[in-house]
Design a protein around this nucleic acid. Structure first.
Lengths: 298, 298
DNA sequence: CTTTTTATTGAATAATTTTCATCATGTTCA
DNA sequence: TGAACATGATGAAAATTATTCAATAAAAAG
């Protein structure tokens, strides 16, 4: 293994210029350096690359092979370097987002629509965190941003607060619980609870509301899509607990009511988790800023 | 411009091995060297290439780009290097032959048939030296071997003797001149001379036989192919001067006679001219050795 | 034939890569 | 939990490699 891109660049330049002197100028080298460089190649492979006693330096067949190689290889390297520089400057890159909280999809999409207009070269993708652990995936480099509601203290991951939300009980307008000012755990003991299809340890209703009180809902069923979930609730097949922003005016009109959990309401904060190593990345900062305006922007 | 093939090799090895330490082993480097190398890249592009806090070192998207580049580029370079080494060792290469003497085609073809069996990877080509000067072409690298009958003293071209020949007058068996023991210039003054279609300065009959005696043939006509030329001679349309080897047994049977030019006969030597720079080339040496056995081998 | 341009060469210098030694961190296993 | 082990990072020294300098040779131009 011996050929370096430097050699290929020199070879190509010499071939194009027709002389060491001219090529040296373009390469910001002395012609002596080029002479040594070529000679080193020729000595290593024990072949002549150029015929020296011709007016414009001409290539031997072997020299031609190498120039041909250079013409194939150098453009590839150059475009790769250019891409890298664009990634470094933040112009281009990858933004793979994982969302723990399923409902986040609702407000995230408009944010990303904005984002794509502002950073057209960044490749955007969303992964619903159904079957994998988002934070380890972030650490492994599989995703670049995680929307999560419980910040951790990790050495390599930073959590930036996005906005506060309130988890409220959602039910059909005529539901008996709609009569109450606020909902307590025991009120759900005889209800059918509808959630997104994730394990209960990742559902705030269970971890922060029901389990501390030792209450189990009468039934637990799941729905993948927010709209389907709301449809089930509206038709009195059960109740759900969702962030306040999910209920838009249009939903209100379809006959849904919401009530706070506990007298004070169950409040939380959404965070954007990113790798500390990439905190300087311009488009990451921007997408977080966009997200911080939150569902209110909608 | 910064990326060198060394970087690509390291990147690829690290990716394959999953750790600097293992990769370093395979590359015959220390782990430290690799660490510095990668760090230099990362600093130059201001980008992370690997995530360090993962067990098997994982690539960032940018790192992936570079490994991908390496996988594209390195094989190309490696095959080029392998090709160069084969050329250097003489296994492969190019053998473009120019022949000044047109008749040489006759004995050269069987030699080349042999040659191609022995050096299948060498690309063989023959150029009839009709309209170009073979020796300058050799110097310019357009051809690699010239068959010539007049050796020159040149600093960059070597002439290796192949074999001696005798130029003889060829005529129809019943031709009046066939009665003579040997032919003198004046005997051709009333004859039609048939030659290959090249300028007279490159025909021995003129330069070494007729011109020194101040004799002109009655007519001069030309034929491109040896067989056509002999056909014309056999049908008494003229006479020709050809090297002795051209007349095979089969030609004798078609009713052709030959006689020496001057009492002593006009003898000459064929040479193989090659660039001194390439004299060490194995297949060049071999083709010369094959040619030295000459037309007698046929 | 001289002048100018261009390439080669060896030695000196500059730049770089690599190694060494050490440290920091993390993992494994008792 | 802590000791042993493995892995990567780091700075300084060492080694290697590339480049320049200066002198020379060679070839084209005038």
């Amino acid at each position: 293994m011996f050929i370096e891109t430097r050699h290929l660049r020199s070879l190509q330049a010499i071939h194009a210029a027709g002389s060491l002197a001219k090529a040296a100028e373009g390469l910001h080298l002395t012609q002596s350096a080029l002479s040594h460089q070529i000679k080193a190649l020729e000595r290593y492979f024990d072949i002549a690359l150029f015929l020296r006693n011709t007016k414009p330096l001409t290539l031997t067949p072997s020299g031609h092979m190498l120039v041909h190689l250079a013409q194939q290889v150098l453009p590839q390297i150059e475009t790769a370097e250019a891409d890298l520089k664009r990634v470094a400057s933040g112009e281009a890159g990858r933004l793979h987002i994982a969302i723990e909280c399923h409902a986040c999809y609702e407000w995230l999409m408009p944010v990303l629509t904005d984002f794509r207009r502002r950073w057209p070269e960044v490749e955007v993708d969303i992964r619903l965190g159904l079957s994998f652990e988002p934070i380890p995936a972030l650490q492994r480099g599989e995703v670049d941003l995680v929307v999560s509601s419980d910040p951790l203290k990790l050495p390599d991951v930073a959590f930036a607060p996005l906005f506060d939300y309130e988890a409220r009980l959602v039910m059909a307008a005529g539901h008996p619980l709609a009569a109450r000012q606020h909902i307590l755990p025991r009120h759900l003991a005889d209800q059918t609870l509808i959630t997104y299809p994730v394990q209960r340890s990742r559902l705030d209703v269970f971890t922060r509301f029901l389990q501390p009180a030792g209450v189990e809902p009468a039934q637990w069923r799941q729905a993948e899509l927010t709209d389907v979930l709301l449809l089930l609730v509206a038709s009195n097949r059960g109740i759900a607990v969702l962030p306040d922003w999910v209920l838009t005016d249009s939903h209100q009109a379809t006959g849904l009511s919401t009530r706070p959990l506990t007298r004070r309401g169950m409040h939380g904060t959404l965070y954007a988790a990113t790798r500390r190593a990439e905190q300087g990345c311009a488009y990451l900062q921007d997408v977080i800023a966009l997200a911080q305006s939150g569902p209110g922007m909608r």
